[in-house]
Amino acid sequence: MNILIAIGGKEYSKPTLDLGMKIANSFEATTTIAYVGKKISQFSEKDVSVVHQNLDDRELYRPGVRTLEWAYDFLESKNYIKKKDSGVNFNDNLIIDEENSRMRLLLKGSHSNKIDLILRTGEIIDQLRSEVESNSHDITIIGGGGNKGMHHKLVQFIDSSVMVVKNYSVNKKYKILLPVNNSLGSNKAIEIAQQFAKSKKMAVEIITVLENKSSDEELKSILKKTEKKFTNAGIKNTASILEGDPVQSVVKYAKDDCLVMLGVSPKNPILKYFFGSKPISIAQQCNCPVLIAK
């Protein structure tokens, strides 16, 4: 499994990194930490590139290098990476220009083989989409600081599961909230939740929301099946049935100590683009981390 963690400034990236690495470790996944720098106008892109090379040569470093250095140190301090993971040693930070707007950073001193540090520049959705496409990432994890429109576009255009880390505290104890339904995305969310809960010994609250439709019976049966699956796997769980509007019900039910994991909407992409979808609305309105599985 491949996991992509997108980070911005040092101040807000700790929760994203922490939760991202917990998920990556539970799947024993290879991890890429990407810093996406500001979009540069085509008029100035070469001038900016020349200046950045100049700054790197003088160990002043282009924006992002220090953030990735800090991220690496943070992961080491939290024991997500161990000193013994270190591969090749370098005397100075090495920035390798790979392809369109993508640079790989190899840190001076020790650099873990388990983590890829990537610098990108440009429009964030475009860059993350390109990163996921070229490296087949399964989950993209990003902080909740961006605007709502950005999260909508991430879910719409990025070909991986997307987790928006909002209001996450590194030292708090969390449980998984798993709203299930009859979509393919929901099956994927169940898989991810099962693996993560098992690895981190977390409790899971499975819920389904009935809307007084013909599919209500099917939803009840899915809820039972999921409950059984988690019980058989030795995961502490509870199952509840809610009624009403799915978005409002889930948002109301999700507390600050929940990690919501749900499937992507099976709706037509064009309708989703213009009118949104239930999972997107839940991710926008919940005040806790939300993973939308694809």
Binding site: K38, I40, F43, S44, D47, V48, H52, R62, P63
Partner: peptide
């Protein structure tokens, strides 16, 4: 910041 290379370079420092 898009008006000249200088402005863009300044902006790109973050």
């Amino acid at each position: 910041v898009i008006s000249s290379p200088t402005a863009m370079i300044l902006y790109s420092t973050g």
